[in-house]
Design a protein around this nucleic acid. Structure first.
Lengths: 195, 195
DNA sequence: GTCTATAGCGAGATAGAC
DNA sequence: GTCTATCTCGCTATAGAC
C-alpha cells in the first residue's frame, strides 16, 4: 500500500501509457506531441510530467515494458521433449504474443532510432536475447538432426522476420482465425527448416 | 534541354533527394527538419522550396520513385520456363534490389503513416501490386504442382517479410557475400513452399 | 539560383495557484 | 493531483535583396 491518496493516480498513469502507446504506434514518436497525449487522456499537458520526467522516458518505459514481458513470457513456456517440438511452441507463441500487442510491437521496432544511445543499447540487448533463444533451438535441432539448415543465425533472423510479419496484415475477425494462422505458419516454418 | 541556366540546379535537386532520404531513414521523417536537410546539402533552408513545394511532397516523391523503380525492375526480369525457376529469380531479385537500397526500403515502409491519405493510397497500391506478382507465381506453382502451400496469400506475405528482413542485418563486407545470402534464403524459400 | 530575414505557429517543459 | 499560464526554442514556409 505505497499509494496513500486517491486511487485515480494509478489509473491515470496507466491511461497515459496506453494513450501514448496507441498514438506513437499510429503516428510515430516524433510526430506525436505531449499536448496530443494529454488531450486524449483528458488532462492538461503539464499533468503528464507528474508521471514521466520527459517524453523520451515515456517512450523508453513503454519499449522496456514490452520487451520485458516478452522475455518473461518466453521464459515461462513449458519445457519440451525435443527441439522440433520446442520450435513449434516458439512459432505459435511468437505469433500469439505479438498479434495480441501490435501497437507495442510496432513501436518497439519502429522507434528504436528515436531512443537515446544508452536506452537503445538496453532495448537492443533484450531483442538480441530473444533472437539468441530461437537460434539456440535451431542449433539444438541441427545437432540432433531434426532440422537441416545452411546457417542457424540467418535462419533465426529469417523466421522471426517472417513470423513478425503476421502483424502487418492480421486483423481479428478476418478471413482466418489466429489458430489457423499459427497452423499455416508452422507448416511453412517446419518445411523451411527441413523437418 | 529544358534547363537553360547553370547545370548546378540538377545536381542540387539530386543532392537534396539523396540527403533527405538518408536523414529520413536515419532519424525518421517527423524528426528531421528542413533546416537539417539544407545544412547537409550546403544551402539555406529557403532554397529547398525551389525544388519541392513542401516537406510532404519530398517524402512522397522519394517513396514513389523507389516503388516505381522496384516495379519497373520487376517487369524487366526475363521470362522463366516454370514457376519454380521464377520463384528463385524473384527471391534473388528481391534480396539484391532491396539490399542495394536499404534507406529507400526503410523509408518506404516506416514512413507510410506520415503520408497524407491520397499519397498513402498511391504508394500502397504499388506495394500491393508487387505482392500480387509474387502471389501469382505461387499460385501458378500450386497449379502446376511444383509447390505445395496451405495458403498462397499468406505465403506471399510470409516470404516477402522474410526476404525484406535481410535488410535489418546484412551489411556489405560482412561474414557472408550477398550471393551466399541469396543461396541460403533461396534454400529456405524453396523448402518452405514444399518444392 | 541562392541568400538573409522573418512571419506565424506549435513544441517540450516548468512555476505556482487551487 | 490537476489546473492555468508562460518561458524558450525550433519548426515550416514565405518575401524580397542580390
Amino acid at each position: 500500500m505505497a499509494r496513500k491518496k486517491n486511487s485515480c493516480g494509478e489509473t491515470t498513469d496507466l491511461r497515459i501509457r496506453a494513450v501514448a502507446l496507441k498514438l506513437f504506434a499510429r503516428h510515430g514518436y516524433a510526430a506525436v506531441s505531449m499536448r496530443q497525449i494529454a488531450q486524449d487522456v483528458g488532462v492538461q499537458a503539464g499533468t503528464l510530467y507528474l508521471y514521466t520526467p520527459d517524453k523520451q522516458s515515456l517512450l523508453f518505459d513503454l519499449m522496456q515494458a514490452h520487451m520485458g514481458e516478452l522475455l518473461d513470457a518466453l521464459a515461462a513456456l513449458p519445457p519440451c521433449p525435443d527441439p522440433l517440438t520446442e520450435l513449434e511452441q516458439f512459432t505459435r507463441f511468437h505469433i500469439r504474443f505479438h498479434s495480441a500487442r501490435s501497437d507495442a510491437v510496432f513501436v518497439s521496432y519502429m522507434e528504436l532510432r528515436n531512443l537515446e544511445p544508452a536506452n537503445f543499447a538496453r532495448i537492443e540487448a533484450m531483442r538480441r536475447s530473444y533472437e539468441a533463444h530461437l537460434e539456440g533451438i535451431l542449433a539444438q535441432g541441427a545437432s540432433s538432426g531434426q532440422v537441416t539448415l545452411p546457417d542457424t543465425k540467418l535462419a533465426a533472423f529469417a523466421l522471426i522476420a517472417m513470423l513478425t510479419g503476421v502483424n502487418t496484415w492480421y486483423r481479428e475477425g478476418g478471413r482466418l482465425s489466429l489458430v489457423r494462422v499459427e497452423d499455416i505458419y508452422w507448416d511453412m516454418v517446419r518445411k523451411a527448416v527441413g523437418a
